[in-house]
C-alpha cells in the first residue's frame, strides 16, 4: 500500500508536469510570440487550465495524508520559496482569468498579459527551486542554527536554482510541442515548431547543467542515477527519443510529437523517482525522510487509496471527455 501511495504521487506529479506544466509553459511561450500566437494560446488553455492545476492539490493532499512528516517538513523549512510560488499561482491564475473575461480591450489587457507572462516564469521557477531543495539535502532540522542556515540556504543554492531553470524550460518545451499541434494558421504553427526546436536545445543544455552543478555541489546525482537500472533505462529511452522527436516534428505528425515529448518527460520523472527511491526528502545531519519512516497508519492509507480510486473513477472519464470536446475536435471556435 505504501508503494501504491508513492506511485500515486508519482503519477499525479507526472500529470501535473505534463498538463499543468504545459499550461505554465504556454504563458512562457507567449513572451516569444505575436498576437496571433497569443490568441491560439488563450483559446488552447482556457477550457482546461483549472483542471490541469488541480494535480498539484492532489499531490499535496496525498503528502499530508500518507506522509505527513514530509509535508510538514517541506512546508516548515521551505516556507519562503513555497510562499513565492504561491504568490505566483495567485497572480498568474487571476491575470489569465481576468484577461479572458475582461470584455473591453484597453490598457488593462496589457497589464493582465504582462502579469500573466511574468508569473508564468516566476511560479514554475520557484516550484523547481523547492523541488531542488527537497533533493539537495541542505534542509537542517537542528535547533539553534541561524535563520539563514535554516530557512534560506536549503534553497538558495546553485543546484536548486539550476533545477528551477530546468523546470521553466521543460514547461516551455512541453507547451511549444502541444501548441504546434493546435488548430491554428500555418504560420503560427511554424513559429511554434521553430520555437520547440530552440527550446529543446536549451533544455538539453540546462539538463546537463543540473547534473554538472550537482557533481560540483557534492550531490552525486549521476552516481545515483547509474546505480538504479530503471533510471539508466529511462535515461537511455529519453535520449533515444530525441531523434524520433525531430523526425516526427519535421514530418508534421502533431500527435506523435506530443506523445514523444510526453514519454520523454515521463521517462525523466520515472528515472528520477527510481534513483531517489525510497527517499522523499534529504536532510542534513539526520536520516532522510523516506516513504517508510514517515508513512501514516495502514487504515489511513487504505481510506485514502479508496478515496483516490473512487475519485479518479469519476475524474478520469470526465477529463477525457473534456479533452475530447476541446482538444481533439476539428472546430476551431471556442465560442465565448
Amino acid at each position: 500500500m505504501i508503494i501504491l501511495a508513492f506511485i500515486f504521487i508519482g503519477v499525479s506529479m507526472l500529470l501535473y508536469v505534463l498538463l499543468g506544466g504545459a499550461d505554465f509553459g504556454a504563458g512562457i511561450i507567449e513572451i516569444f510570440t505575436d498576437k496571433k500566437g497569443v490568441n491560439t494560446i488563450s483559446k488552447a488553455i482556457a477550457p482546461v487550465w483549472e483542471a490541469n492545476h488541480i494535480w498539484l492539490i492532489v499531490i499535496i493532499v496525498i503528502l499530508f495524508n500518507a506522509f505527513p512528516e514530509v509535508y510538514s517538513t517541506i512546508t516548515q523549512y521551505l516556507h519562503i520559496p513555497i510562499m513565492l510560488a504561491l504568490f505566483g499561482i495567485i497572480f498568474r491564475g487571476t491575470a489569465f482569468t481576468f484577461r479572458y473575461y475582461d470584455p473591453f480591450s484597453d490598457t488593462s489587457h496589457a497589464i493582465y498579459t504582462f502579469i500573466f507572462k511574468l508569473f508564468s516564469v516566476f511560479t514554475p521557477f520557484f516550484l523547481g527551486v523547492t523541488l531542488g531543495a527537497v533533493i539537495f539535502g541542505e534542509i537542517n532540522t537542528a535547533s539553534g542554527i541561524s535563520f539563514y542556515q535554516q530557512y534560506i540556504a536549503p534553497w538558495l543554492n546553485l543546484f536548486s536554482i539550476s533545477l528551477g531553470l530546468f523546470i521553466v524550460i521543460l514547461f516551455a518545451y512541453l507547451a511549444s510541442v502541444y501548441l504546434s499541434g493546435e488548430p491554428a494558421d500555418e504560420e503560427s504553427n511554424k513559429d511554434f515548431k521553430r520555437l520547440s526546436k530552440l527550446i529543446l536545445i536549451a533544455l538539453v543544455i540546462t539538463g546537463g547543467l543540473v547534473f554538472i552543478i550537482a557533481e560540483f555541489s557534492g550531490l552525486h546525482l549521476l552516481h545515483k542515477f547509474i546505480k538504479s537500472p530503471v533510471s539508466i533505462g529511462c535515461g537511455v529511452f529519453a535520449t533515444l527519443l530525441l531523434p524520433a522527436f525531430l523526425i516526427a516534428l519535421n514530418r508534421n505528425r502533431a500527435s506523435l510529437v506530443r506523445i514523444i515529448a510526453g514519454a520523454q518527460t515521463g521517462a525523466i520523472l520515472i528515472g528520477w523517482f527510481a534513483a531517489q527511491f525510497p527517499v522523499l526528502v534529504v536532510l542534513q545531519g539526520s536520516p532522510s525522510l523516506t516513504i517508510y519512516n514517515t508513512v501514516a497508519p495502514d487504515k489511513t492509507l487504505l481510506m485514502m487509496i479508496i478515496a483516490l480510486f473512487v475519485g479518479l473513477a469519476f475524474v478520469i472519464p470526465l477529463l477525457f471527455y473534456l479533452f475530447k470536446v476541446f482538444k481533439f475536435s476539428e472546430k476551431t471556435n471556442t465560442d465565448y
Binding site: P68, T300, M304
Partner: peptide, 10 residues
Amino acid sequence: GPIIGMPFSW
C-alpha cells in the same frame, strides 16, 4: 493530516 486527510481527498 493522517486523521482528516480522507475528507480532503474526497
